[in-house]
Amino acid sequence: MHPAPSVIFFTVFSGLGFGFLAWLGIGIPAPQGWAAFPYFFVAFAMAVGGLIASTFHLGNPKNAIKAFSQWRTSWLSREAVLAVLTLSIMGIFAAANIFLGISMPPLGIIGSVLALITVYTTSMMYAQLKTVPRWNHWTTSLLFILLALGGGAILASHSLGTILFIGLAAITQLYVWDAGDKRFGKRGHTMETATGLGSIGKVRMYEPPHSGTNYLLSEMVYVIARKHAIKLRIIAFVLAYVAPMVLAMTSGPGFNLYIVALIAHIIGILAQRWLFFAEAEHVVGLYYGKR
């Protein structure tokens, strides 16, 4: 799949933003009055910024309002609805904190649950696709949620939360990479099943349908730079998981190096998300003799 920068930014930053909102909702940390402003500002800027970035990959964004209508079947629509709902609830929670100095814990808890459900709906846009076996698994969603909680914990400068959730995410990540590498083969999608010609024998591409490229090839059969995958996995793993955990363990209960941990985590997750798309193979590639 084509690793579009807009979608990478969207998933990384909205994940972090909603993850941070989930922590703020349960009062970790619990700043009051104007001191709370920078916390909520960062969380909202990331969540909303990510959502705005996602609109850059739309071909026809003028109809975007209609994306709230199909929540019965569409995970993208559900995501739009839940994102707005979460931001509204947390907006009220934040405004009450900042302007009135009133803390409303029940509202915050509802907001933080909704924030995590929003991250889940984001993950399901990918995990639902049978056409991309690497993504089509519940661990895709688990990793998105653990990363939101882990990234949120770094933003909340909560060292125990960082160690716990980044640690769980790291274990999940190793499984996701390993199992993901094998899943296309396991599902049994081949050029023979794609063409139905397997009953005769082995199929190979003789001539592609067009001499140039097309939308399908540039969007779904992205094979550029996969050769760096192993190096990028190591970079992503060290920066996104190992560095924040080591910093959280060594910098004491105050987690005073959380800014360094955050920068490492964000760079690592950008690399991880680039790989998430670039390594994902769509079954349509079989019609072109590619994966």
Binding site: H57, N63, L129, T131, N214, Y215, E219, V284
Partner: peptide, 27 residues
């Protein structure tokens, strides 16, 4: 008239039956 050109339907199709028009921005 309702399409936002998000491309998710093309991702969901195993057969490559949908193409996003590069000028019109609709599926």
């Amino acid at each position: 008239d309702d399409c936002i050109g998000c491309g998710l339907c093309a991702w969901a199709c195993p057969y490559g039956a949908r193409e996003l028009d590069q000028l019109a921005g609709v599926m």
